[in-house]
C-alpha cells in the first residue's frame, strides 16, 4: 500500500487556486522530491500531509489526502496524532531557545512522556540518527543557538525523529545552509530513507537528483510530471519539465 496518497486535491487560498486536482502516491521508504518554480504549489502540497495549511486563514481543501490509507482530513483523525506520525523539518533551522537536550526531548514531553531514562535514550538515539551526536555529546545542556546553522538544522531533524514518525516532510531543508552543511543534510536524507518515507521540497535541481528516488514537477498549481528521478533527469516526457530542469524555463 502507498503510505502517502492524494486524490484529486484542490486547494484555494481565498480566491487563489493554489493546487489544481493533484493525484499522486508515494511508497514506503522512498524519497520523493517536489520541484518547480516559486509559487508553483509544491510547499503547499507538502503541508497537506501534516495539515500545516490549517494554520492559514481562508484555506479550502477538497479531495482526499491519505496517510497509511487513512483520510487525514476526516473528523476521526486528531491533528496532534497525525503530526506525531508525519514529522516536519522547515526551511530555516528553527530550534527552540532551549538547550540542545531539551530541543530533542520537546516532542516527547508534549506527547506526555515523562520517563527520564526513556527520554534520555531517545534523545541520544535521535541525535545519533541525525549524525549530530559526536558534535554535541559534550554540550547537551548548552543553548541550541550556540550551534552552527547546519548543526541547528540537523538538531531540528533529530527533534523531528525523536517522536519516531513514519513520514518526514522537509521544506527546502538546506536552502539556508552553506554547501558543506548542505551535503551533510543530503547524506543524512539518504541514510534516513531506510527507516522513513521522505518528501522533500527543493529549489535545487541537483539536490533533487542526488537525494530522491521519485521527482514531481509542479507548475502553477498543477502536477506536470511525476516519475522516477532517473527518468525525469535523463528523459522527461514533458517539454515544460525538460525546460525547467535544463534551466531554459520561461
Amino acid at each position: 500500500m502507498h503510505i502517502l496518497e492524494t486524490k484529486a486535491i484542490n486547494l484555494h487560498y481565498g480566491d487563489f487556486h493554489a493546487l489544481k486536482g493533484i493525484s499522486m502516491v508515494a511508497n514506503k521508504n522512498t524519497v520523493t522530491a517536489l520541484i518547480g518554480p516559486s509559487g508553483c504549489g509544491k510547499s503547499t502540497y507538502l503541508r497537506l500531509f501534516n495539515r500545516m495549511n490549517d494554520l492559514i486563514d481562508n484555506v479550502e481543501i477538497s479531495g482526499q489526502v491519505l496517510v497509511d490509507g487513512e483520510d487525514i482530513y476526516s473528523r476521526r483523525v486528531h491533528v496532534d496524532d497525525l503530526r506525531k506520525k508525519v514529522g516536519m523539518v522547515f526551511q530555516k533551522p528553527n530550534p527552540f531557545p532551549k538547550s540542545i537536550y531539551e530541543n530533542v526531548a520537546y516532542g516527547l514531553r508534549v506527547n506526555g512522556i515523562n520517563d527520564k531514562k526513556f527520554i534520555e535514550e531517545r534523545v541520544i538515539s535521535s541525535l545519533e540518527q541525525a549524525a549530530l551526536w559526536n558534535e554535541v555529546k559534550d554540550k547537551l545542556n548548552k543553548s541550541a543557538f550556540e550551534l552552527s546553522g547546519g548543526q541547528q538544522q540537523r538538531l531540528c531533524i533529530a527533534r523531528a525523529l525523536a517522536i519516531q514518525p513514519s513520514v518526514l516532510l522537509m521544506d527546502e531543508p538546506a536552502s539556508a545552509l552553506d554547501p558543506l552543511s548542505t551535503s551533510k543534510i543530503e547524506e543524512l536524507i539518504y541514510s534516513l530513507k531506510k527507516d522513513y518515507t521522505i518528501v522533500i521540497v527543493t529549489h535545487n535541481m541537483q539536490q533533487a537528483g542526488r537525494v530522491s528516488d521519485y521527482t514531481a514537477f509542479f507548475y502553477m498549481g498543477t502536477l506536470v510530471e511525476y516519475n522516477e528521478t532517473k527518468i525525469i533527469f535523463t528523459n522527461p516526457q514533458n517539454t515544460q519539465t525538460q525546460n525547467y530542469i535544463t534551466g531554459r524555463f520561461g
Binding site: 537528483g209 542526488r210 528521478t229 533527469f233 535523463t234
Partner: peptide
Amino acid sequence: ENIFALFN
C-alpha cells in the same frame, strides 16, 4: 548516464 544526470 544516470550518474551524470543525478549527481553531476
